[in-house]
Every structure is written in structure tokens, then in C-alpha cells.
Design a protein around this nucleic acid. Structure first.
Length: 752
DNA sequence: AGCACGCCGACT
DNA sequence: GTCGGCGTGCTC
């Protein structure tokens, strides 16, 4: 009987049906090579094999099967399907993020495809010829070549010794373990004294004994609570612990338990900056058992990791960023999501716009495993789930050891300015504290949120500001090179010598970012060694490590930085942290602004005095009475959570509603307007007041295209599956309308 | 995502 | 008169 296979291709397209050639065995989850279109070869994933003949004329055959085993398990396929349906994207788009690039060869010809295919690295192994295993014969040969070919003689002795020592059954030794070079070994091979074989480079992980940290009484209580709740059937639990309370030690114990019974563990971390430190920490405990997975790995390494895990029989421990939820862990029993509130778990561009934290919860349910969500400042979604009993929970309220929580001082910027106690962007209180800290030999971190407060240039005479010609934003001023850069499209231009509008005066840099802070603080404290950590100063992984290493080794006194400095670094010497402008955190026009501001400030504050007893935090703000400022000063997470939840409930925002944002894009503003009015009207007949908009986004033009938004709010009790169904149907109708066909619609489910 | 097909501006 | 711009539609 002729069989057909529905195949997922790495495109924003539905599955396509290919014919299975007779004699070819294909199963769901397998990777295959197919020809798609007139001249294009792609890697596809077999989704379903069936015998229903499709009703189009040409059904192309599968070219061949790739890899010896399926790349996806049934659970992984179920996860892909969940993501495609929940985030409203194609399986092909999931495929693009889920599989490392090298695993998906493509090309214009079959040769090009083959050339693109992953080939495992091989290594040369050498062993003594069978004949020389006989001791007598071995000595005979040695004597024969000792004089005439001393190098070969040495190599032969070394090989015999190494083979013996490593006790490899065949006496095989990797070439890199010998000092002999290729020429010598070739000669020996020609004389048939040794045998050389090419073998796949082994990337087997180690499996040494774990060295588990001792737990405090508080940690033990939390660990036992989690164990009990997991055992009682809770699939997901929240571990809420203030900075420095030792959540990691609890992770370690849970991870060790799973590994020692042969299960797999996935530890998700927000992004690369944090990964390095945590991987090191885990390697100190679990040795070479740890498998890292992040974007800084080479493509080859990622592919090797995927394929190795795919063959593994359990006991794997992966530490990785969001895309690690797609790794083939066949015995997945535990997923730990560290800093679960972190926005970087959500991918916003391109599709699939998935949240790895939520995917982790789904994946653990699919494999019968457990998910542990850890954070000092959980997202309100998670916190409510734990408070309502849907998730299990455990808490750590005390800092590890004798470390006291930092003392938080709120400094009123307006009052300081009125009294003349403000120099540059610093209030006297902060400057005094910096001076004292430096005198004591302590280190200082200064946090300046660059986002939403970028430096720009303006004319002091007429108020003209430099704007991007393609995007509706002001250009950002970069002092290095005196350039103006658009952060949306990358457009770059020189700072004009005279104001282009009134042609009278110079344009002046306005606003301030980390660069400016660095400059000012160096001027005020000329003795201090100042460094800066932000996207501009971190040009490479190396530059990043160097800045961190210098600060860690106290070769720097003051570190100025953006969000980057807040991410989990553990610097012993930091006793003072300054938040230069809390206002721009509080005043974001976003329903999550207060939650975000609290999380960020707590995280920054947590950098102070992690090991020293008691650090200090100075928050500069013009609204010292703002509820969030008070909650931060009091370290009152629950107060913030309750206040914010009350507001969210009143205005129907998450976690009391699920949001889906729609962004429409077109170069012609009138076409766009007509389109969005049409779509909004249609959606309103379905969703009524649950649809908000059309609304103009903060940046309403990018790369020459105009943007407009719609927002769908579905209350938590309602069926979100039904809502997605209705939405998908309306979007299909809309896309089929010839008047609006050229409008791009971006759907973002659970936007951050 | 590619790529081919198809209808309007500046060139040999 | 063509070469080529990118708008539109299709790929099993």
C-alpha cells in the first residue's frame, strides 16, 4: 500500500504531504530530506504517516531519511503541538527554534544539501598490530627500529605503555594522547606495526560523585516541604526565597536526587550572563555531568549535544537558556526554572513567541515530571497560583549565614535639588555614602536604567531633536564616535554641526545613560577606578568576563551598569548599591510597571552585602512616597503583590485575564487604518468589550512601516482555547480580504 | 522562507 | 525597444 507522510518544514507553513517510497521505513519524529518547490531541498520532520492519498496532482517523494533515530519523542511532539496551538504559530516555526541550525541542512541541490549535513567529528585512534601483542615479537621489532628510526621506536614504546595504562581492551589510544606526530604514526602504519582507525569523537559526559552542600535548618524545612508536595502529586511548585537565602542549594539537592535515580534534569536560567556563573557553580557540585546549552556555544557543539542527549539513557543534567526546553531529555523528571519572573524567558521576535517557563510546566506534565519555579520576586501569575493552592510552595525568608538584609535608604531628588544638595545626577546622600564606602575600601555598584531614558541631542534654541527617518523615535546619542543611532532599525548618522532647523546654535547632548554616569562619577571621585557594564561596553564575551573579573578581583571600585549588573552576580566586596533614577522605572506606561520596578529594585538591592554583613542601598527618586518605593524599602513583596493584584483584578489584567496583542503593519497609513478598523469591528462582534483598540503604540513607525495595535483580554475563567479558535478564524478571514492582504499581522500571546 | 510570474520606470 | 524593480501567489 502506498504510504504518505505529513511533514513539518522549517517555515511559517502548515504541514505538507509527501509520498513514502516503497521499502523506506519512516516513523513520526524522524528527520527526512525533501524537495520543496522547484529547486529547494529542506530538512523536514515526519509528523504523521498515513495511507490517505492527497488530492493534488504531484505528490513528491521523500528523498531519504536522516539520522538513525527519530529526533523527537512523542512528548516532544506534543510540546511542539501545544506551542503551535497556544502561541498561534506553525509547527515549522517551532522547528526553527527547537533544532540547532546544523541539524537542519538545506540547499538548492542535493549536493549542497549533503554538503550542509552534520558530520560528527572523528578522531584518529591507534593500537598495536595484533602481531606485536606478543612480547617477544614486540622486542624484536623494537630492536630492529631503535637505531634507524628512533622517533618510531619512542612512539611504539609510548603506545604500548599508554594502551596498558588506560586498560582499553583493544589497546586503542586517541592520537592526541601520544606525543608522536602523524608522519611517525603513518610510517608505523605502513610497516603494519600499528593500526589506525577513525572513530566518532566521543562527547560522553562524566559521572563522578556529587559533593552536596550542607543545608541550614530553614533550607531543610523548605526542601522537605517541596519533596512532600511533589510526592503528593503537585506537578509545579514555587520556591520563593529572598536574595542570598540559598535557593540554589535546594535546587542542588533536588537535582541530585533525580540524577541518582537515573532521571534527567533541566535547569533553565534567564540568559547567558547568568548562565556562566551558575554553570560553574553546578560543575563544582556535579562535575562533568553538567551539559551547558546556550547561544554562545558553537553550532556544532549544540548539535553534538542534541544528538548525544537523544541517544542517552538517562541521568542527564542540562543547564541552559530558554531554547533548552526543546532538548530531547527522554527521562525528564525535574525542570527548575531559576528567576522564573524574568522577562527573557519570553521570546518576542520572531515566532514562536513562547514563554519557556510556561512551556517547562507543560513539558513536565507531559513527561510526568515536576517543575520548580524559583525566584526572590515571583511573577504575580506564579505567586497567585501558589497562593491559591494550584502550585505547591516553599519559602526562604532569611539570608544565608549571618548576612543581614541590606539597609535601604530613599533619597528625595527634588528636595535635594531644592537644598542645593545635588551634583550632576547624584544627591548628596548618595555621594556621601559612596565616599565613605570607598574610604573603607568597599565596592560600589551604580544602576542606571537606560531604557526609556536614552541620551539624545537637542537644539537649545528651538528645541529640535534628531529623529530617525524610518522610525518614529528620537535617535540615541553615542559619544564614542559622535554618532546618532536608531535603536529600532540601526540607522546611523553624524551629529549635525549646526541645528538643521534654526541653523543658529550647536545641538547639545541631553538626558543621561550609563556612559554619562561613568564620566560624572570619575570626575567627582578622581581616585576611584570606575568601569561600566552595558550593551555598548560588552562588545564580546571576553570583554564581559574581563569587566566582571576586574570587579571581582577588586581592581575596580565602582561599577556602573544597566540591567546587566542586576543578574545574579555574587560580588563579595559590594557594600553599596545606588539606584540613580527610580522614577523612570515607576512611570513606565505598562500594567506591569510596578511589578517590574519592584523586582528590579529588589534584585539590584540584593547585590549589596551578599557576604559582608549588611550592605546599603540608596534609591534616588522624586516620589519617595510612591507605594512601590515604600514596599521596596520595607522588602515587602507580599504588600506589593496584594496591592498590584487588587489593581489587576479591578482592570482585568493578568493573572485575572489572559492577554493577546495584535500588531498590524503596513507602509501605507490609510490602508493600515482601514484594515485595523475592519479587523477590530469583526473581532468586536465576537469578543465585545474584551477587545481594546485600535491603539497607537509608543513607537508607531519602524523601518518605514506604520504600526497599530489591538489587545484582546480574555478573563481567566473563560476558555482560552475557544478564544484562540475564534481569533484564528477572524484572522484567516482578514488575511483573505484582497484589500488588506498586504497587511502584516503579528500575534503575541501572553505578551510581556 | 524562497522563488517564479507579472506588470511599470531608466537605460543600452 | 529591453533590464529589472518588488508586489502577489504558491510550494505537497
Amino acid at each position: 500500500m502506498q504510504l504518505y507522510a505529513d511533514i513539518v518544514l522549517p517555515l511559517a507553513q502548515p504541514v505538507y504531504t509527501f509520498a513514502v517510497p516503497g521499502g523506506t521505513d519512516v516513523a513520526a519524529g524522524q528527520a527526512v530530506a525533501v524537495q520543496f518547490g522547484a529547486r529547494k531541498f529542506y530538512t523536514g520532520i515526519v509528523w504523521r504517516v498515513h495511507d490517505r492519498r492527497p488530492d493534488f496532482k504531484t505528490v513528491k517523494p521523500i528523498q531519504r531519511v536522516l539520522y538513525d533515530a527519530p529526533l523527537l519523542s512523542a512528548q516532544q511532539m506534543a510540546l511542539w503541538e501545544w506551542i503551535a496551538s497556544y502561541y498561534m504559530c506553525s509547527l515549522g516555526e517551532v522547528m526553527r527554534v527547537a533544532l540547532p541550525a546544523l541539524m537542519k541542512p538545506s540547499g538548492d541541490t542535493e549536493e549542497e544539501f549533503s554538503g550542509d549535513e552534520f558530520r560528527p567529528r572523528t578522531e584518529c585512534y591507534v593500537s598495536l598490530a595484533a602481531e606485536l601483542r606478543d612480547e617477544g615479537r614486540f622486542h624484536e621489532v623494537c630492536e630492529k627500529i631503535e637505531r634507524r628510526a628512533p622517533k618510531q621506536y619512542e612512539a611504539l614504546l609510548e603506545l604500548a605503555a599508554a594502551g596498558d595504562e588506560t586498560r582499553i581492551a583493544t589497546g586503542e589510544v586517541a592520537r592526541r594522547l601520544l606525543r608522536a606526530d602523524y608522519a611517525v604514526l603513518h610510517a608505523l602504519e605502513r610497516k603494519k606495526y600499528i593500526v589506525c582507525t577513525q572513530r566518532e569523537r566521543s562527547v560522553e559526559r562524566g559521572g563522578s560523585a556529587f559533593r552536596l552542600p550542607e543545608l541550614t535548618a530553614h533550607q531543610l524545612t523548605a526542601l522537605n516541604a517541596l519533596r512532600e508536595q511533589f510526592a503528593a502529586g503537585k506537578t509545579t511548585a514555587l520556591l520563593q526565597g529572598v536574595t542570598g537565602s540559598g535557593k540554589t542549594e535546594i535546587y542542588i539537592h533536588l537535582i541530585a536526587e533525580v540524577l541518582s535515580r537515573g532521571g534527567d534534569v533541566l535547569l533553565l536560567v534567564p540568559e547567558i550572563a547568568l548562565t556562566a556563573q551558575l554553570i560553574e557553580r553546578m560543575e563544582r557540585i556535579f562535575g562533568s555531568r553538567v551539559t551547558p546549552y546556550h547561544s554562545k556555544l558553537t553550532n556544532r557543539r549544540r548539535t553534538e549535544t542534541y544528538l548525544r542527549l537523544n541517544r542517552s539513557d538517562g541521568g542527564e543534567f542540562v543547564v541552559g537558556v530558554r531554547s533548552s526546553v526543546f532538548l530531547p531529555l527522554k527521562h525528564l523528571q525535574l525542570i527548575v526554572v531559576d528567576e522564573e519572573h524574568d522577562a527573557s524567558y519570553k521570546q518576542t521576535e520572531p515566532a514562536p513567541r513562547y514563554n519557556a517557563r510556561d512551556c517547562a510546566v507543560v513539558m513536565a506534565r507531559l513527561t510526568g515530571g515536576r517543575t520548580l519555579l524559583g525566584s526572590a520576586t515571583p511573577s504575580l501569575e506564579t505567586w497567585l497560583n501558589a497562593a491559591s493552592g494550584k502550585y505547591g510552595r516553599a519559602e526562604l525568608t532569611e539570608r544565608y549565614g549571618d548576612a543581614r538584609p541590606p539597609e535601604i535608604l530613599v533619597s528625595d531628588t527634588l528636595r535635594a535639588a531644592r537644598r542645593g544638595e545635588r551634583k550632576a545626577h547624584f544627591n548628596k546622600l548618595l555621594l556621601d555614602r559612596i565616599g565613605e564606602t570607598l574610604d573603607r575600601g568597599g565596592q560600589v555598584m551604580l544602576f542606571q536604567n537606560r531604557r526609556g531614558f536614552s541620551p539624545y541631542v537637542a537644539c537649545s534654541e528651538c528645541g529640535w531633536t534628531a529623529r530617525c527617518p524610518h522610525c518614529n523615535v528620537t535617535l540615541t546619542y553615542h559619544k564614542g564616535g559622535r554618532k546618532l543611532v536608531c535603536h529600532y532599525c540601526g540607522h546611523t548618522e553624524d551629529v549635525p554641526a549646526k541645528c538643521p532647523s534654526c541653523k543658529v546654535t550647536d545641538v547639545l547632548p541631553m538626558g543621561f545613560g550609563t556612559e554619562k554616569v561613568e564620566e560624572e562619577i570619575s570626575r567627582i571621585f578622581p581616585e576611584a577606578r570606575v568601569a561600566r557594564l552595558d550593551r555598548d561596553s560588552v562588545t564580546s564575551e571576553k570583554a564581559f568576563s574581563a569587566i566582571i573579573a576586574d570587579f571581582e578581583a577588586r581592581r575596580t571600585d565602582i561599577l556602573v551598569g544597566t540591567q546587566m549588573i542586576t543578574k545574579g552576580f555574587d560580588f563579595a566586596g559590594v557594600s553599596l548599591v545606588g539606584i540613580l533614577n527610580a522614577d523612570n522605572l515607576l512611570n513606565n506606561p505598562d500594567f506591569r510597571a510596578a511589578e517590574r520596578a519592584f523586582q528590579l529594585m529588589m534584585q539590584v538591592a540584593g547585590r549589596a552585602g551578599r557576604r559582608d554583613d549588611g550592605g546599603e542601598v540608596v534609591i534616588q527618586t522624586s516620589e519617595p512616597g510612591h507605594p512601590v518605593i515604600r514596599q521596596v524599602a520595607a522588602g515587602d513583596f507580599e504588600g506589593m503583590a496584594r496591592a498590584q493584584l487588587a489593581e489587576r483584578k479591578a482592570f482585568f489584567y493578568p493573572p485575572y485575564a489572559r492577554l493577546t496583542s495584535l500588531t498590524l503593519r503596513h507602509r501605507d497609513p490609510s490602508v493600515l487604518r482601514n484594515g485595523v478598523m475592519d479587523l477590530a469591528a469583526r473581532l468586536r462582534t465576537r469578543f465585545g468589550r474584551r477587545l481594546l483598540g485600535p491603539m497607537t503604540p509608543p513607537v508607531d513607525r519602524i523601518r518605514g512601516e506604520y504600526l497599530v495595535g489591538l489587545l484582546l483580554k480574555i478573563e481567566s475563567g473563560a476558555s482560552s482555547a475557544r478564544a484562540r479558535e475564534l481569533l484564528a478564524a477572524e484572522l484567516k478571514t482578514f488575511a483573505g480580504n484582497p484589500a488588506f492582504k498586504s497587511i502584516t499581522v503579528v500575534v503575541n500571546v501572553d505578551p510581556q
